[in-house]
Every structure is written in structure tokens, then in C-alpha cells.
């Protein structure tokens, strides 16, 4: 599968402005889903709500701390070039 499929923009779904999306958990999966709803599904971000039980977002993707208390990562990620879905998603700006 190449550019012909990947670069294609899906048509705006009928009635998308009247839909609301609720996402449970704030792991990378729901963050990505919210992104695809907006970019590919033409949904207004204002109609999207993510529920997260903690006061920190990201689920398993963690990283916190400071010099005084020490830093903490529960794990790290080994990635590779052919994360075909991830790399189409991570084209957002860092800021």
C-alpha cells in the first residue's frame, strides 16, 4: 500500500457535526483515536471528551520526576521504522 491510499482524504461523514465522541482512558490509543477523528473524520475537537481517572495523562507512556525526588520511568519503548500507523500520526508539531 502506498501514497495513493495513504494520501487520500476521506470525505466528510454526513452529520459528523452532530456526533459526540467519548474516550475512556488517556493512553496513546485514545489520544491517537482523537487525532484520527479530527484529521481523517473531520470531527470538531470540541465534540471529543477523554475521561482519565488519574491526574496525569498518557497511560503506560510515563516519565516524571525531578532532581530532588528522583526520576521515574516504568519502562521505555523500542521502536522501528515500520510503525506505519504511528508515523502517519506523529506528523504533528512538537509545539
Amino acid at each position: 500500500m502506498g501514497s495513493y491510499q495513504l494520501k487520500y482524504h476521506a470525505k466528510k461523514p454526513e452529520g459528523i457535526e452532530n456526533k459526540k465522541a467519548y474516550l475512556v482512558g488517556s493512553g496513546i490509543a485514545t489520544l491517537a483515536a482523537a487525532f484520527f477523528l479530527i484529521r481523517d473524520g473531520h470531527m470538531d475537537g470540541k465534540n471529543i471528551t477523554i475521561f482519565e481517572r488519574k491526574n496525569v495523562n498518557g497511560g503506560a507512556l510515563d516519565g516524571a520526576g525531578n532532581l530532588e525526588d528522583g526520576y521515574i520511568i516504568r519502562g521505555g519503548r523500542e521502536m522501528e521504522e515500520h510503525y506505519e500507523c504511528t508515523w502517519t500520526y506523529l506528523v504533528i508539531f512538537q509545539h
Partner: peptide, 20 residues
């Protein structure tokens, strides 16, 4: 990863409701 993604979503109006 998480920080830029959350920022992008919030810039686009997505609400994240914590402690929920």
C-alpha cells in the same frame, strides 16, 4: 510523545477530564 500529542489535541478543542 505524550506532551506534544496532548497539546495538539487540547489546541484543537479536545477536553481531557481527569480524576474521572
Amino acid at each position: 510523545f505524550v506532551l506534544p500529542l496532548v497539546k495538539w489535541l487540547e489546541d484543537h478543542g479536545v477536553k481531557i477530564e481527569n480524576n474521572t
